[in-house]
Each structure stands twice: as C-alpha cells, then as structure tokens.
Simulated assay, not measured.
Amino acid sequence: MNLHALRLFYTIATTRNVTRAAEQLNISQPAITAQVKKLEKELGIVLLQPAGRGITLTPAGEDIALLAARLFAVEQQIEQFCGQIQQGQAGQIALAATYLPAHVLLPGWLSRFKKQYEQVELTIHTTNSAEALQLLTSAQVDLAIYGGVPERASEWVEMEELFRDELWFVVGPEHPYANQHISLSQMMQEPFVMREQGSSTRERLLSLCRTHNLPAPSIPLQFNGLYEAIQAVTAGYGANFISSLIVRDEVARGTLCRVYVEGIHLENTISIWTRKHEPLSAAASHFVDLIRSHPFKQTIQ
C-alpha cells in the first residue's frame, strides 16, 4: 500500500475538502486528486464521491479513514518513543554490579534515576568481580559498577574511578583482637570468613599475603552473599577483610570491631567500567552522569 497516498486521503478525510487538504500539504489539487485515484485503484474500492460542488467519503472511505487514523496515531507514538530513546527518556539499561555497590550504593542511585527517568527499564546483575568483567566484555551488560578492581582487566574495557574507601579487618566484639593493634602475621593466623573465589576483596587479601611473604590465611567459611559472611563474623567466628562502606554502621554500633593491623592501610576503589570506543546509549549516559554527581563518600574515620 502506498502510505503517502493514504496520508493524502486521510488529510482530505479530516478536512472534508480537497482544496484545503492541498493547501495544508502544500501540493497542488490535481496532484492530490491523482494520488487518491491511484490509491483507490490499488485498494480496489472507491474512497471519495462527489457531493454537490464538493466531495464526501463513501462508507468504505469512512472506514478506511478510521483505520488510517489509528495507523498514523501509532506512527506518532513510534516517533515519540524514538525521540525519548534518543533523549534517554526511555529504553533499557543492563548493568552488572559487584556486591558492595549493589547493596550499598545502587539502591540510592537507582531511586534517584527512576524518579527522573521512569520509562527507562533497568536490569541489575549482582555478581563478583570476575563475572562482572565477563558480562561486560561479552556485551551482556552496558556497564559495570565495581567495588574493587578485577585482578585481570581486559584491554577492551576502561575504568572511571568515582571514589575510594578503606578496607578494614573486622572481628566480633568478643574476639581477643577486637579494637587491638596487631601485626599482619598475627592477623593471618586467624580463620577468615570470605566471599567466593572471584571476589576482588578476597583477591586483595591473598595479594597482601604474597606481598609480605606470608602464607595465605585459612578460609574455612565462604559465602556467595556479602551479608552472610558479615553475620558469621558478627556471631563470633573468625575475621573478615571488607570495605568500610559495608560495615561502618556495625562498627559504630559495636556489633563488629576493627582490628588495626600495623603498617597496613589499603583502599578500595569504587568505579564505573565500560567497553572502550563504544558509546553508551543516552539512557545509560544519563545514569552514569547521575552517579558522577551523587557519589557516596561517607566513611568512618
């Protein structure tokens, strides 16, 4: 079907006058009449009929005009939707987040974003550092939010640092090392409760041991979840090495206690990772801009 001719006919149907339709469309009256005649021949039905000195729609023409109204309304909706996507007002964002930003930072960021961009759909994959990098490099997500840095980055991705927080050794309040200053070798004698392999914080702990030529600590308990590991330490078993953002409230309440390891001061990087030389969608760019303007920097001193 010639949609251009259908639009000409629809304009005649809405104005009920060929001359006014031609003026509105800025084409000649003979041209618009010829196009409608071709449309009638194509469809095999008569759309317009003479009525005195003017024209009127045939019953079939009335029905076609109603269907055309629906068609062009949908066309307008498509144009509006495409415009919203181009402006970042609609669309989809898939992102991966490691456990720290997923639990502590993303809820606030997402709340702010959805209040401003309600039509944008977001899919969040909460996982460890290694899996987040794999999802990003395989284009299964648009960007990744890291608490920590993957041990092996890829030449296909780039990092933008947002801020840093401290990494703390923590134990339960009844632990003999609670609030004490000890050596790293003493700390490494303790059993650790950590996340699964692939966790960047776990890798930082093992790297710390390698740097200081110490044997790796035993990790008799490991969890896939962040808070499960914290709860085990809070209940009185072992130690944890963790971002201060995660446990700052527990330390303030006294349900967890820091262990001050002499000569050790490590920081955790909170960052955004994207694929190099691949522009983000407008919606994803808006989300990144929001994160940049509202980073979470409060830590316990």
Rank of each mutant, 00 (worst) to 15 (best):
A96E: 00
T274C: 10
A229D: 01
M194P: 00
A65N: 08
G263K: 11
L162Q: 04
I246W: 00
E62Q: 15
S281H: 07
S293F: 03
Q35E: 14
S207G: 12
P295G: 05
N17I: 05
L57C: 11
L66R: 15
P176N: 08
D142R: 04
Q80F: 12
A21Y: 01
D165R: 00
W109Y: 09
A94D: 11
S285R: 15
A144M: 09
L110D: 03
L167N: 04
E79I: 15
E267S: 07
I230V: 15
T126L: 02
L100T: 13
S28R: 09
F9K: 07
T126R: 07
A60P: 04
R253V: 04
E131W: 05
A235H: 06
I182K: 08
Y99I: 06
A216W: 03
T15V: 10
S218Q: 12
T255A: 09
S111H: 11
I45Y: 13
G148P: 01
Y237T: 04
F296I: 04
V149S: 02
Y10Q: 14
K38I: 13
V120H: 03
Q116Y: 06
Q86D: 12
F287S: 02
F9I: 15
A239S: 04
M1H: 13
S207T: 13
K115Q: 15
E196D: 12
V259G: 02
A96I: 02
H294K: 10
A132M: 07
A22L: 09
I32D: 01
Q84E: 07
L67E: 14
A60G: 10
A60N: 11
L106Q: 01
L206P: 02
Q301D: 14
S138M: 09
P59V: 15
S244F: 02
